[in-house]
Design a protein around this nucleic acid. Structure first.
Length: 259
DNA sequence: ATGGTCGACACTCGA
């Protein structure tokens, strides 16, 4: 099973680039972030015609997540538990039925800037809710993937210029500590399990020639439960996608599972 | 040090 995460920064803007990447990379499952679309406006037929089931959890203008899958999906759930007043569309779950059943959680973690402030408070509260959801799913002792745009730079080696991010919500010590609390529940960072080298990024800002200077950060992650990590055979970042026509500011990251 | 780019939408906000 090839499973990818991809922050597309708007489905309408990526209506050519996303199908092109799907045709080339042929993932079985893709978690999308920042679809920036309500469910009714998502162009599901484009992907259904390519053999994908389509499950969306969108909202007007901002955020929004989705799962595309060539494999059957069961028990689709929308929204991160823990705050009924939270109306932001940032979490979707489904069980993918391959040779093994894998619970897949697609997430778009809040950016949190400017920090400090209410947006940063929301980020930290959201991460606490995610920690609770991870605990609950780990208790099932089934293969689970938590993938998406975490808006977290885990370590200095995950940024070309870490000093530039010192005051940023993506790299503040409190952000990284909250991320570690989640990982330390027993999750495996799939990319780091396969590649321990610095200098691998998943996001390059549109501004200031960040791509041309390779001024990137690694913020798109696939975290695996122990039972899922046992199935991991590969993890790669499709860096070249950033250099194609009309790219997102993020690139796809994918894993191969024996499932 | 500063300003720089996109996407969605309707003018400015979010990233």
């Amino acid at each position: 099973m090839k499973l990818a995460t991809f922050n597309i920064n708007g489905i309408k803007a990526r209506i050519e680039a996303l199908p092109a990447w799907l045709s080339e990379a042929k993932p079985d499952v893709v978690c999308l972030q920042e679809i920036k679309s309500v469910d009714e406006a998502f162009p599901r037929e484009v992907f259904e015609d390519m053999g994908y089931r389509v499950e969306t959890h969108g909202m007007k203008s901002f955020n929004g997540v989705a799962i595309l899958s060539k494999l059957p999906l069961e028990d689709v759930a929308r929204g991160l538990p823990g705050d009924d007043s939270d109306e932001q569309a940032r979490w979707i779950e489904a069980t993918v039925i391959g040779t093994r059943a894998v619970r897949v959680c697609g997430l778009y973690l809040p950016n949190g800037n400017p920090a400090p402030g209410p947006k940063y408070d929301y980020k930290l509260a959201w991460m606490a809710r995610m920690e609770a959801r991870v605990r609950a799913l780990l208790a099932t002792e089934e293969p689970v993937v938590f993938c998406g745009d975490y808006n977290v730079i885990p370590q200095a080696e995950d940024a070309a210029k870490p000093a530039a991010w010192a005051e940023d919500a993506l790299f503040l010590p409190e952000t990284r500590a909250a991320f570690r609390r989640i990982v330390n529940l027993g999750l495996t960072d799939a990319f780091r399990a396969v590649n321990q080298n610095a200098g691998h990024y998943s996001f390059w800002d549109y501004q200031a020639g960040a791509w041309e200077r390779n001024n990137g950060i690694r913020i798109d992650h696939l975290l695996l439960s122990p039972q899922c990590a046992d199935l991991l055979s590969d993890c790669r970042i499709d860096k070249a996608v950033r250099g194609l026509e009309k790219p997102s500011d993020h690139v796809p990251v994918w894993i191969e599972l024996d499932a």
